[in-house]
Structures are given as C-alpha cells and as structure tokens.
Write a protein that binds this DNA or RNA. Structure first.
Lengths: 107, 107
DNA sequence: TTGACAGGCAACTGTTTAGTTGCATATTAT
DNA sequence: ATAATATGCAACTAAACAGTTGCCTGTCAA
C-alpha cells in the first residue's frame, strides 16, 4: 500500500532474507521460516507482520499452520515508479563522465 | 557500497525527498537543500551524511559552500541485482492467477 | 576589519525498533 | 484424554534513530 511501508520493510536485512527464502520456496510455515534463524520465533513473527503490513507477504491459515506467500508486486511497483525515475540521471551522469574523460585525454 | 546502507538510506522519506530535489536540480548547496525544509539545518546535514555514506550523494567544497550531487548508480544496482530477482516470481504469480481465474470460470 | 553567511561538531532528548522472556490458545497425533 | 506441535499476545530491554540546541570555524563582502 504505502510506499513508505515497503521501503521500511526492505530496510532490514533479516526481512530481505525472509523474502529471499520465500522466493526460493513459496508457501512456507512460520516454523519452517524459523529454521536456521539466529533469533526467536517471536522475533521472526514480528518481521513477517511488518512484511505483511507492507503487502509484501500474504498469509493463509492451514490447520494449525500459517503459510506465507511472497507478493513481489510492491517491489516491482517501486522499481517501476521510483527507481525508474533515477535511470535518466544515471545515463546523463555516465554521458557526462565520458565527456570529462575525453576532455582530460585532450589536455 | 554496502547494499544494506543503500536500503537503510532509502528507508527514510526525508532522505528520499532530498534525492528527489537533487534529481530535479543537481549540485545544490546545503542551504539550498534546507529551503522549505521543516527541520533544522543540522538535521538535514545528518541525512545528507547518511546518503553520502551510502554513496548515493557525492559532495564538493566550493568556497564556503558544499555542493551535493546525486549518484543514482547504487539505486540502479539495487534495481538490477536485487529487484530483478523478483521479476520472475511476479510473472509466475500472474500466470498462476490467470490460470486460477480460468479454472473458476470453468466451474 | 568587521559583520554576515555557510557550514561543522557535540551533547542531549524522545521515539522507534529489534529482540527477548513468559504465558496462553488452538490443532494434531498417540 | 493427553501430550506434542504451531502459533498468538503482551510486557520488557537495549540500541538505533531523528531531531533539537548551543557553540565554534571558515569564507566572503562592505
């Protein structure tokens, strides 16, 4: 939803790792996501709640388990709407750099 | 440099606004960047230091002024190396969604 | 050379955040 | 029924963070 929530959710390396694990295998339960984690289950729960609030993860209750699904759409929206704005200045900067290098070569 | 520093730098709306202002006009001094800001100059200085540490902003001393330049390259690196990883699952998810909708239509 | 302008540095405050411990609830298997 | 499993909820702690105030230094202009 809010772009700020997505940026803030992506700011934490633990949360990015959780997204990576879901990308590797979607639909994992909380316990599965806690395996090999260096923190408590409750901490992982909080991280997942933040990801869910940012709409980066969707959940589904299956019996006593809670399955987690990656939603990559907000990430792509950021890529399109925000990062896209920075492509043009990058190209401009590269062109300018090239120009400066050529100018130096002429000295 | 470190991807984490870039993500953390982008997590703050004030810092994203500073990047936007530099994108609109590059090479602004600290005082210029403070205009219309709702916080003190010292606060803006700290935000710019974080952006500089993340290599998103480069600076140059010009007399008594300090000019700030946008460096969009780390943003594009994140787009390419990290966000790019999430394009494939998005397409997969959309394909699956389409399949499910078609299946519902057959019921 | 004095004053105004641009910026740097440091200490302090309030809030947010990441993580913990402890306990409660719901579901499955024996 | 009972025990084990899977998760939820709440209170607490320590560290990080955003922002402030106060003061100092360097540069330019009159």
């Amino acid at each position: 939803m809010s772009m700020d929530a997505v940026f803030k959710a992506l700011a934490d390396p633990t949360r990015r790792r959780l997204l990576d694990r879901l990308r590797a295998r979607n639909g994992q339960s909380l316990s599965e996501l806690c395996e090999h984690a260096v923190m408590t289950r409750q901490a992982v729960t909080k991280h997942l709640a933040i990801l869910e609030a940012a709409n980066l993860v969707a959940t589904e209750k299956r019996g006593r388990e809670k399955l987690h699904y990656l939603n990559p759409i907000p990430i792509n929206e950021i890529a399109d709407r925000w990062i896209g704005k920075y492509e043009r200045p990058r190209l401009r900067a590269l062109a300018e750099l090239k120009k400066n290098l050529e100018a130096e070569g002429n000295e």
